[in-house]
């Protein structure tokens, strides 16, 4: 508070914090076509630009809210403690990075798993929170994924994942590498139970996450224009030493190359998922 502020009697002081309660702005620019949109309208449109169809990144909670029937969901609580056995430190300690990410996102780690319903059909859905250390997969993410799939097996229901991840979490070294094997192992169990596994790839899905659980879906769906690949474009550019073609590693490119089943607009995703699962589950009894 400035010296002048202090002179004003408390009763007529305007607390500076109140300023931040003001709406940040009712309008926003589409980061692709720059079209000005009313924020409430953009939210109703699931953060897809009504002019150009650009899909903005959204958080895991938002994602799950969009997909699951209102009031149907129960969270599989992440009670895992990050043990940091390597005591990893680069410019910052890994432990501090985790605490900072937890504060920033209000999440325990980068994977959120919910039991819920899609148009009244039981499912288990996991979503990566990209805001939590780039959605990277370490021991906690791997274990939550396993718990999610186990819950699906228990309920005899489909398992769906929404990926948004830079890959394995380097700060957990070889532990994170082995999460690729771990998530694949539990998917084998789901597979043996003949329960559907649908992976929905959103921007971005790379590295160890792409090269394990993301590419193992019975059905693989991508959101439009998402970056999906094993190596990131910068790494490839450094390796091959020339510029990459336009649209390289984007959803539509993957569809053309035969890597994924379909590209679906976020606004149609819930109904599409439901319809696909109705086919795959048509000969199954669910344990609700």
């Amino acid at each position: 508070m400035s010296w002048f502020g202090k002179l004003i009697p408390q009763k007529i002081r305007t607390e500076s914090s109140k300023k931040s309660d003001m709406p940040e702005g009712l309008w926003s620019n589409c980061s692709n076509c720059k079209a000005v949109q009313y924020k409430a309208e953009l939210e109703r449109n699931l953060f897809v630009c009504s002019k150009c169809g650009f899909h903005s990144r959204i958080g895991a909670r938002n994602r799950l809210e969009i997909i699951l029937d209102h009031g149907s969901s129960f969270e599989i609580i992440n009670d895992l403690v990050n043990k940091d056995p390597l005591k990893f430190k680069d410019s910052k300690r890994y432990k501090d990075r985790v605490v900072a990410a937890q504060k920033k996102t209000n999440e325990q780690d980068a994977l959120i798993v919910l039991k819920g319903k899609i148009n009244k059909m039981s499912v288990v859905v996991a979503a990566f929170e990209f805001g939590f250390m780039g959605g990277s997969m370490g021991a906690s993410v791997g274990e939550m994924f396993v718990r999610g799939v186990r819950a699906a097996i228990k309920r005899s229901c489909p398992f769906i994942v929404f990926t948004a991840s830079g890959g394995a979490r380097m700060q957990e070294g070889v532990i994170s590498l082995f999460q690729m094997a771990k998530t694949s192992a539990i998917l084998k169990k789901l597979n043996n139970n003949k329960l559907p596994y649908i992976s929905v790839l959103t921007d971005p899905t790379l590295g160890g996450v792409s090269a394990s659980l993301a590419m193992l879906g019975d059905i693989i769906i991508a959101e439009p224009d998402a970056l999906i690949g094993f190596a990131g474009p910068r790494v490839i550019e450094q390796t091959v030493r020339h510029k990459l073609p336009d649209g390289f590693q984007k959803s539509e490119f993957l569809l053309e190359k035969g890597h994924i089943d379909m590209v679906i607009d976020r606004r149609e995703l819930k109904d599409s998922l439901h319809s696909i699962l109705m086919h795959l589950m048509s000969n199954k009894q669910q344990n609700v």
């Binding site: 792409s210 090269a211 590419m215 790494v235």
Partner: peptide, 20 residues
């Protein structure tokens, strides 16, 4: 390998499939 052709032929899937 991180190259254009490797990505075009789905490096991620090849690795994931082997794990699975």
């Amino acid at each position: 390998y991180a190259g254009i052709g490797a990505e075009e032929r789905n490096q991620s899937e090849a690795i994931a499939r082997n794990l699975f």
